[in-house]
Nucleic acid binder design. Structure first.
Lengths: 158, 158
DNA sequence: CCGAGTATCTCGCTCGACGAGATAATAGAG
DNA sequence: CTCTATTATCTCGTCGAGCGAGATACTCGG
């Protein structure tokens, strides 16, 4: 394996650039991790994204309907139905017809699925929280501000 | 399955937790963005991941063979061949038989593809770099250290 | 109570990814 | 130098996630 290609600066550099690349590396790593979680539990990446979206909504105290879930994941209605079918068959969620509008199907996450995710991602979350405990308020504010800025910038693009 | 997961404690206390969720939100947002890039250019998410991996390797001065690319993306050999076929057909990469080991196929990214990616992601990168310019050295070090810590923690899990 | 609007599901299809195995090139033993 | 093991890539047949089109079920304003 020769690495003869010289290190050329194809991109404008500066101390900020390595952070940008670090961030991308982190997202890649997290993507691979959730992929490992998926295949270990005989799920597809989309299924994992769906569970995360569902738990997120639940945390925020919102009901998630089939339609909302599909929209959040960028699936059309057919794909969404198939997704919920898979998750339901695997016992990760259950369909509940909404009382007030019986066209709606509310998706609820089974406790078993929550436990599964927590068992897998818990250690990482714990380690990250521990890592954060080493910073003072100003540093935490910087990290928070940076992430918020990136999220907004990413949401605004495209 | 059932064990000590009291609902309240799963998202416990601490100012750190919102940063964990922020980070996840950022990765979700970046994932959606690259999805928009993919469909806008008639590509599949895997194709985008492949181009990113290829450009990454190129920046690090490494040649990428078909096999390495497939391994990096978690594809088997058949899928890798199909992937490179797609990218080549679209004019984003070219296959080059390695001189010294003629079994090897080195994948090179076409300049056109680099320009395409830069045109789409450049603004976000620029905005992020600008955002980072607002922090002093200690804050930048905190951000860098946090991201590095998360990357290592994520790589270590699973 | 009818028709427009909305939410979800069904059907048929495409194509990305997989497993198995073929093909081609290299490296090493004798 | 030839035979064999190993490595890198590609081919073939198959599966299944997601799409487009349209069916079905329910709600609500006139």
């Amino acid at each position: 394996m020769s690495e003869t290609i010289p290190e050329k600066d194809m991109q404008p550099q500066g101390p900020e650039l390595d952070i940008v690349h670090l961030l991308r590396a982190v997202t890649v790593e997290l993507g691979l991790l959730s992929g490992r979680f998926a295949s270990r539990n005989h799920m597809h990446p989309t299924d994992v994204r769906a569970l995360i979206a569902l738990m997120d909504a639940a945390r925020a105290g919102e009901e998630t309907t089939a339609g909302r879930l599909g929209a959040a994941l960028g699936l059309n209605s057919a794909g969404t139905t198939a997704l919920v079918d898979r998750l339901e068959r695997a016992g990760h969620v259950r369909r509940v017809r909404s009382e007030r509008d019986r066209r709606r199907v509310v998706i609820e996450v089974e406790e078993q699925a929550v436990a599964l995710g927590w068992a897998f991602f818990g250690p990482l979350i714990g380690r990250t929280a521990e890592l954060l405990r080493g910073y003072d308020e100003r540093e935490l504010a910087a990290i928070r501000g940076f992430l918020e800025g990136v999220r907004e910038a990413a949401a605004g693009e495209g």
